[in-house]
Design a protein around this nucleic acid. Structure first.
Length: 158
DNA sequence: GCCAACGTTGGC
DNA sequence: GCCAACGTTGGC
């Protein structure tokens, strides 16, 4: 069981958009970064949990939790010339990009903001908080996961 | 909208 | 394989 953090720009796809899907499930498309892809393709397992992070917005931060319900399979938007994520260099027979399916689990009452995350020494080694970080999919360790959950719920970590 | 940081591309 | 140029991310 692994924990993750996955970023999305809410103007493009917010956590509410995921919740509105049938069965609250959708594919996580458009990942076009090799490191993020490798995490998704090689390490993400069914049943893993992920924080949903809103990036590039007024109040960036973690807004809720989703579950990985389908492991990596080729990202079909790479082969679709009408998609914003079309990649002419990707070969349908040897897919370059992958996606997973995620299911909405919960939305926090209050966003755990980036600003707030930066305040805690318990989180100072988090990948999200490292200088110049741009990864859109990254692992979160168990201690960090629990700590952030406690911030979201107001309860002490188990 | 600015811009620092980072990733990718492509000439050599 | 180096590295300059360019494109993208994402906080502010």
């Amino acid at each position: 069981m692994n924990y993750w953090l996955m970023k999305s720009e809410p103007d493009t796809y917010a956590i509410d958009d995921l919740e509105k899907q049938p069965r609250k499930t959708d594919h996580w498309d458009g990942i076009r970064n090799y490191q993020a892809r490798n995490f998704m393709r090689d390490e993400m397992k069914k049943g893993d949990l992920a924080f949903f992070y809103h990036s590039n917005c007024n109040d960036p931060g973690i807004v809720g939790i989703m579950e990985i319900v389908k492991e990596a399979y080729p990202d079909f938007t790479a082969c679709d010339p009408n998609s914003a994520y079309f990649d002419p260099k990707s070969d349908a027979n040897n897919p370059r990009w992958y996606m997973v399916d995620v299911k909405f689990k919960c939305r926090f009452d209050k966003t755990v903001t980036l600003k707030e995350l930066k305040q805690y020494s318990a989180l100072e080694s988090m990948r999200l908080l490292q200088r110049g970080n741009r990864l859109s999919i990254m692992p979160v360790n168990t201690a960090e996961w629990r700590f952030i959950l406690s911030l979201a719920t107001g309860k002490q970590p188990a």
